[in-house]
Structures are given as structure tokens and as C-alpha cells.
């Protein structure tokens, strides 16, 4: 078969979920692009806008617009979030807009697992795993930290948290989040 077939896309855990004092569910796969470029690169802001429709995020911020988002990962790295099927076109757009600029844009959609933690006590689930001061976490802040024993990142919106980790440890993170959301283990 030399034509590209319509292969069903499977997230790491097939959409696993757990209902505890907060709801934990695996979502995705989401389209994700790691974009490495220095903020002063000419056309960077326009390229990000063309792909996500958002402004260029400032230090530790994530700009969210509907299903798309652009997050600040480090002084020369951005995380672009978009529908899974849009990635190929987005990479082409970036390549075109940043053609003459030193940058790196790679598809990392399949390298990640994404979770939602929802409910009034969603922050208590993360408080048990991440050494981050969640009370000081601003809306629209992207926090990269440790989730129990693995690297992770999360940001908060009105209904809860979006948590991103590496795909190979999705099962571990799901297990840790579920353990932390057990009914009867509310913190406050």
C-alpha cells in the first residue's frame, strides 16, 4: 500500500479516567510542536500567531485560544498546542515563515501524554505530586516541574488543570494522579 492510509490514532492510555474527589482523565492525542528559537528572531511572533492564533507567550506564560495554545518553555523554546491533524500544515507554515532564521520545529505530538484534572479540588491532586506552590500559580502560567518521579508541565484554567508528561510514563502518571485523587484523601 503506497498511499497513506487513515491510521487510527491512539493516545498512550486510550482515554483512561478516574473519578475521585477530582476527576482525572487522559485526553488527546493533542498536536504539539516544540519550537526552538530566540524571542528576538525576526518573524517569530508572526509565525506563532499563524499557527496558534495567539500572541507570543512571555516568560512562564501560556497563551490559550480555543483548542490552540502557545507556551513559554524556556528562553529559546516554545510549546505549540493545536489539533493533532493540523500539525503537518503547521510545521510547513513555520518552515516557510522562519525559512531564513535559525530555529528548530519538531512534531512531538506522539511523544507526550496529556491529562485533565477537573473539579473544585483539582489543585489538591497536583499538590501531592509536584513541589510547586499552586496557590501562587497564576491563571495562564505554564509550570514545568516534577510530577512525583517524572518531568511534567501543567497550566490552570477555569475548570481545572491540563497536565503534560512523556508518553512512555503515561501509565505511571495516571497511577500517581489516581492515587492522589482517592476519595477520603482530600487535603483541606
Amino acid at each position: 500500500m503506497s498511499e497513506v492510509a487513515n491510521i487510527p490514532v491512539v493516545s498512550a492510555l486510550g482515554g483512561a479516567s478516574f473519578d475521585g474527589f477530582a476527576r482525572v482523565r487522559e485526553i488527546g492525542p493533542l498536536g504539539m510542536i516544540t519550537l526552538r528559537a530566540k524571542p528576538e528572531v525576526k518573524g517569530l511572533s508572526a509565525a506563532i500567531k499563524a499557527v496558534t492564533g495567539t500572541a507570543m507567550p512571555k516568560q512562564r506564560r501560556i497563551e490559550v485560544k480555543g483548542e490552540k495554545a502557545a507556551g513559554w518553555m524556556s528562553p529559546d523554546e516554545y510549546l505549540l498546542v493545536l489539533p493533532y491533524t493540523d500539525v503537518k500544515a503547521a510545521l510547513a507554515t513555520l518552515a516557510e515563515k522562519l525559512a531564513d532564521q535559525h530555529h528548530l520545529a519538531v512534531d512531538v505530538s506522539d511523544a507526550r501524554a496529556v491529562f485533565r484534572i477537573e473539579g473544585d479540588r483539582a489543585s489538591e491532586v497536583l499538590s501531592k505530586l509536584a513541589p510547586a506552590d499552586l496557590a501562587a500559580l497564576e491563571k495562564g502560567e505554564l509550570r514545568r516541574t516534577r510530577i512525583a518521579q517524572v518531568a511534567g508541565a501543567f497550566w490552570q484554567d477555569e475548570t481545572g488543570f491540563t497536565v503534560v508528561c512523556f508518553r512512555s510514563v503515561a501509565g505511571y502518571v495516571m497511577g500517581a494522579l489516581s492515587h492522589s485523587a482517592q476519595p477520603g484523601s482530600e487535603l483541606f
Binding site: V10, A12, A148, Q149, V150, F166, R167, S168, V169, A176
Partner: peptide, 15 residues
């Protein structure tokens, strides 16, 4: 803490 049994340590799994 939570590091017991299945989540004693992060086991990495291939697809």
C-alpha cells in the same frame, strides 16, 4: 508515600 506497587517507580512502556 505513593511510591508503592504499580507506581513504585516510573516504568517506561513502549507503544
Amino acid at each position: 508515600g505513593e511510591a508503592r506497587g504499580e507506581i513504585f517507580q516510573p516504568l517506561r512502556r513502549s507503544p
